[in-house]
């Protein structure tokens, strides 16, 4: 028999972007500690639907920690109290019997609430569209060894590329800054020869888009790095600053 816990939930309910939201209390008994956090919300929603109430709206997709769709600010932490995992990988064994769990949406001017716990993160797509890519003419595929890249650099680019764009960095930041996201997206390309060609325009355009969309400025508190489910390092932010300043001074 599984170990089960009884929990109390304090969940943010908001009908739409223009509506005033408020916390609503729920209690859920006999939750198996082996259920994931999102499965727990599924169970809650099932009971709500059976009672004829509106289910809680939340974002989710792959449920294996790689798509970046799930969000949720659980007990004061983006993606909950567990370290280096997304909300979908958070399990109920991280909570105590009788505990009150507060669930809030990402709160930032750049991410307006769509409904309940779901926020609009299209701002990140717009930032990527501003330059987070490499322009290529797809023709014959060149040999992978044609361009040699030192292993440490390849590793660092790969680490930056592990950013899933979930927005936890913005949610954690007291300035609502998107610099960790942006720095990862700039670094993954700036470190590699293929990405260097467009490095200057990329840094300038993406930073301009980030500022335009109303994200805040970085004050190096490092909260983003601590809360990032993929452990993206703030050393990437230094690289972004470097890339941006270099590009501007070369103009």
């Amino acid at each position: 028999m599984d170990k089960t816990i009884n929990i109390k939930l304090k969940i943010w309910r908001q009908k739409g972007p223009k509506y005033q939201g408020a916390f609503k209390d729920y209690s859920l008994d006999g939750v198996s500690v082996d259920t994931s956090f999102l499965e727990m919300l599924d169970i809650l929603n099932e009971t709500l639907i059976n009672k004829g109430e509106e289910p809680v709206v939340f974002d989710h997709d792959c449920r294996e920690g790689i798509c970046g769709m799930c969000s949720l600010y659980v007990n004061g932490h983006p993606h909950g109290p567990d370290e280096d995992v997304t909300t979908c990988q958070l399990h109920m064994r991280k909570f105590k019997d009788g505990e009150t769990i507060t669930v809030e949406p990402w709160r930032s001017a750049g991410f307006p609430v769509i409904r309940d716990l779901m926020v609009d993160r299209r701002a990140f797509d717009k930032i990527i569209q501003a330059g987070g890519y490499v322009s290529v003419n797809t023709g014959g595929v060149p040999d992978a060894n044609a361009i040699a890249i030192p292993k440490p650099i390849a590793d660092e680019a790969m680490d930056a590329a592990s950013c899933i764009g979930c927005g936890a960095c913005v949610a954690a930041c007291k300035n609502g800054s998107a610099m960790l996201f942006l720095s990862a997206k700039v670094s993954q390309l700036a470190l590699l020869p293929q990405g260097k060609v467009e490095a200057a325009t990329r840094a300038k355009n993406m930073v301009a888009k980030m500022d335009e969309l109303g994200f805040g400025a970085c004050t190096n508190t490092g909260a983003c790095e601590v809360e990032c489910p993929k452990s993206i390092s703030i050393s990437n932010i230094a690289r972004l600053n470097r890339e941006f300043l270099k590009a501007k001074f070369n103009d």
């Binding site: 600010y73 007990n75 004061g76 930032s108 750049g110 007291k174 805040g216 400025a217 508190t221």
Partner: peptide, 25 residues
């Protein structure tokens, strides 16, 4: 500007994550 970017809604529960210096905030 940063306060504006953060938005008007505050978190009900906010914890200073371990590893974040008090001075920095």
């Amino acid at each position: 500007q940063n306060r504006k970017a953060r938005g008007n809604a505050n978190y009900a529960v906010s914890v200073r994550p371990s590893g974040v210096e008090w001075a920095s905030q």
